[in-house]
Amino acid sequence: MSKTTKWLLAVAGVLIIIFSLQFNLQADDEKEEKHPEVDFTQSCMECHKEVTPDIVRDWEKSKHGVMNFGCYMCHGDGQVEFYRKPSTETCLSCHTGEPVDARKGGNLQCFSCHNGHSLKFHQ
């Protein structure tokens, strides 16, 4: 094995370790994004009114708040399914006839323009 080959293998090894570490870190980040253990004797809202009052207030003033479309509609039940960042697909189940076709905007999603809780158009 030539010196060059050894050198290249060493560099490749280091890169693999770095990528692996990065992957693990990403995986850890994803783990951290998981919803904490849930007390199923209370609703999402009961807890979130205390821990994220600003978000709840934004939601309450929104059209979803007026209709009482709760946290679970976009974020899941928190146990079987939890979506930290809800998808456009969820929106499309109700907003079937909206004037903007998000799919035409490349990777544009509903929440690219609409604030997630106030639903205000922010771009």
């Binding site: 199923f40 039940d77 146990q79 079987v80 399914e81 979506y83 960042k85 809800p86 998808s87 456009t88 697909e89 969820t90 499309l92 189940s93 799919r103 999603q109």
Partner: peptide, 29 residues
């Protein structure tokens, strides 16, 4: 509590691959 868990798991299993998964914008539609 067991009932909620059971039905939740069943619902998840039933909708596996078809639920409204973030980023999977092409699946259902």
């Amino acid at each position: 509590r067991e009932f909620i868990k059971t039905s939740a798991a069943a619902a998840a299993a039933a909708s596996l691959g078809t639920s409204l998964i973030p980023g999977a914008a092409s699946q259902l539609f």
